[in-house]
């Protein structure tokens, strides 16, 4: 199954979009843990794209593509920004960074998804979650 969304870059669109996405994913019968992880990673990536990629300009959309099979969910989030090098983001788990305010969103995505990749420009993030690893609630 595949579905594409074009989302205005406004933070109020984030919860609406994640609700639509979780509705679309209902046939997968995700566990509570999987729903939490998918929602968190989706919302963190949308917020990053809207804020840093599209400067919160509602007229500039974020493109979201969802693809799933019984065993795998792929979410691709693309903005119209210049892109960035995620290797430059400080490791938020290092002691000297624990009190910092930023950097946790992308770190959580790396930890909660099974595979992530960026395009060469750095404005398109693909996230893959393998399904069925967590026990059903």
């Amino acid at each position: 199954m595949k579905k594409e969304f074009q989302i205005p870059s406004s933070l109020s669109e984030v919860p609406k979009t994640s609700a639509q996405v979780l509705d679309f994913l209902k046939p997968l019968k995700l566990t509570e843990g999987e729903i939490f992880d998918v929602r968190l990673c989706l919302e963190e990536s949308l917020i990053n794209s809207m804020k840093y990629g599209n400067a919160l300009k509602p007229e500039i959309p974020v493109r979201l593509i969802l693809e799933y099979t019984d065993t795998e969910l792929k979410m691709t989030v693309e903005d119209h920004g210049e892109g960035f090098d995620t290797r430059k983001i400080a490791d938020c788990t290092k002691e000297e960074n624990l009190l910092k305010q930023s950097g946790r969103g992308i770190y959580l995505i790396r930890q909660l998804m099974d595979k992530i990749s960026y395009n060469a420009k750095g404005n398109c993030l693909s996230m893959v979650k393998y399904l069925g690893k967590q026990a059903k609630a």
């Binding site: 939490f36 929602r39 968190l40 919302e43 963190e44 917020i47 624990l98 009190l99 910092k100 305010q101 930023s102 946790r104 969103g105 959580l108």
Partner: peptide
């Protein structure tokens, strides 16, 4: 029931 990186950052700010 749910917390994101903004929520974590807010708690860090309160702790600081």
């Amino acid at each position: 029931t749910y917390i994101d990186s903004s929520g974590l950052a807010t708690l860090v700010e309160m702790l600081k």
